[in-house]
Design a protein around this nucleic acid. Structure first.
Length: 486
RNA sequence: GGUCCCGUGGUAGAGUGGCUAUACAGAGCUCUGCAAAAGCUCGUACAUCGGUUCAAAUCCGGUCGGGACCUCCA
């Protein structure tokens, strides 16, 4: 039984898929106007671990959709003719704003997915619909909202009427917003469009010169323009998954207004009470105790980290040591610690595989069962990865490889393989053969001989030589091992 | 201005009204020519001030500090 925190109920509730054919899950995806930063990584790590837990621990097939927002103010601005953010890899800019937008966003979409892949996120499994491929469905939904009486046309745009909606439905189910206490001076005139109330939001934005636009015939009007911010997720989730689906995920910042408005649009236009049974939101991260921002100089893209010699998978491990609903403090010391800890798990995997040899055993046939139980229980409890990892380390120290029978070892390997399909922190494979160059081997043998002759000075000198060649020599009882220097 | 969250050992980070988190770092021991690796052991943490209670770091209130949302934001 998997239990998940649900923003709708503000409690951890038992989870059951609505339909027999698996879990349908929708995650608000990236707006593709730049390369991914580590905050993005945490945001998409969460739904990844969630869908992996549902599959591996829950045993459910998962249909996971994560949209790509390829039409919004930023993508339009940065793809416009003369934009300093245009890159030569995107090709030549054209006179067609929509074509420019496509070239710009497809470039960053590929970059983004590549970054997600290095982070162990299951991009092969997720479906990534583009917002601009669902304009017709969005227009249909806007039409239905208008017909139902929850929208109005003003100055070439279409708006959602929150007051009319609130009269018949609950608005604020995900986030109880107090419209009487909007922060002064900020919300009003937030954009140049005309709407009747500050709490109303735009469904369709009228065309502006030089911007991409689609024709839209509605209610006897011709309203060329583009979709508003929230409509894409409502339309795509209905089109691809069907409403209501099981789980909707996103960052905490999206609870309001984005998710609240998505839900309202679905209820207003599709006449469903629920868009999704569960709404789950992950917390943000801080960097060295401060909110990540370019002005503080603590803003890091994945590329920045790689350039510093950091492996993305170590960052993944570090993030898994915090619960998804808690603010995570990203530090470079923390990543270094994660690297060491992860190497320990990897060593354990290598050693257990060696003990298992040619034996094969299933996780539920031997010691692996205890591992699956203790770690799985933590994961099933609202994706509690910190406790799951703690349980893994406890198991490791209680089950030293040298104490295991081959059968138990094989069972543990099978359990580790399954659990790693959630964590994605190690490679489940035999320890790679270390290729030692001949000249290094010669030096090592020389040193081993000097050491046997108790010629400590020469022995230590040769060890230093080996280190300077990039190899660490470790003396065993009967033989030595060589490892590359870190 | 409104609403809300958090403050745990050197660091990261769980948890619970009375009992071990876990990881990294550190110390000691075993092993070892030395070192590394490995194994064992250890530190006795819970912002602050009051209150409730037989018992609070865990519940309540004040204070201080950090953060979130209300506005593009992962």
């Amino acid at each position: 039984m998997i239990r998940l925190y649900n923003t709708l109920t503000k409690s951890v509730d038992p989870f059951e898929p609505l339909r027999d054919d698996g879990v349908r899950m929708y995650s608000c995806g990236p707006t593709v106007y730049d390369v991914a930063h580590i905050g993005n990584m945490r945001a998409f790590l969460f739904p990844d671990v969630l869908q992996r837990t549902l599959r591996v621990i829950g045993g459910y097939p998962v249909h996971w959709v994560m949209n790509i927002t390829d039409i919004d103010d930023k993508t339009i601005r940065d793809s416009a003719v003369g934009s300093p953010r245009w890159r030569s890899e995107m090709g030549e800019q054209t006179t067609d704003p929509l074509e420019n937008l496509r070239r710009f966003t497809s470039f960053f979409t590929q970059e983004f997915l590549a970054d997600l892949r290095t982070f162990g996120i299951d991009v092969e499994r997720v479906v990534n619909p583009l917002a601009t491929d669902y304009i017709a469905q969005m227009q249909d939904l806007i039409h239905d909202i208008l017909v139902a009486g929850y929208g109005y046309i003003s100055d070439g745009s279409v708006y959602f009427n929150v007051a009319a909606y609130s009269a018949k439905h609950a608005y604020g189910r995900l986030f109880a917003i107090d419209t009487q206490n909007f922060r002064e001076g900020v919300r009003i005139d937030a954009d140049e469009y005309d709407r009747e109330s500050v709490s109303d939001f735009v469904l369709w934005k009228g065309r502006k010169e030089g911007e991409p636009a689609w024709d839209f015939a509605i209610d006897g009007h011709q309203l060329p323009g583009r979709p508003g911010w929230h409509i894409e997720c409502s339309a795509m989730s209905q089109e691809i998954l069907g409403l209501p689906f099981d789980i909707h995920t996103g960052g905490v910042d999206l609870r309001f207004p984005h998710h609240e408005d998505e839900l309202a649009q679905c209820t207003a236009g599709y006449h469903v009470h629920e868009q999704a049974a569960f709404w789950m939101h992950n917390e943000f991260l801080e960097v060295e105790g401060k909110k990540m921002s370019k002005s503080l100089g603590n803003f890091y893209t994945m590329r920045d980290l790689v350039n510093r010699g950091i492996q993305p998978i170590d960052v993944r491990f570090a993030m898994l040591q915090a619960h998804y609903r808690a603010v995570f403090n990203f530090t470079f010391d923390g990543v270094a610690a994660a690297r060491t800890a992860r190497a320990k798990v990897q060593d354990y995997v290598y050693d257990v595989i060696a003990v298992a040899g040619n034996h094969h055993a299933a996780a539920d046939d031997g010691a692996g069962q205890r591992l699956m139980d203790s770690v799985g229980q933590a994961l099933a409890d609202d994706i509690h990865t910190p406790r799951a990892l703690a349980a893994l380390f406890v198991f490791i120290s209680d089950h030293a490889p040298r104490t295991l029978t081959p059968h138990d070892a094989a069972s543990i390997v099978d359990a580790l393989r399954r659990l790693n399909d959630v964590f994605v922190i190690v490679a489940i494979e035999p320890r790679p053969e270390q290729i030692v160059p001949d000249d290094i081997r010669v030096l090592a043998d020389e040193r081993w001989a000097a050491r046997a002759a108790k010629n400590w000075a020469e022995s230590d000198r040769l060890r230093d030589v080996l280190v300077s060649c990039g190899w660490t020599m470790k003396d065993g009882k009967d033989t030595y091992t060589l490892e590359p220097v870190d």
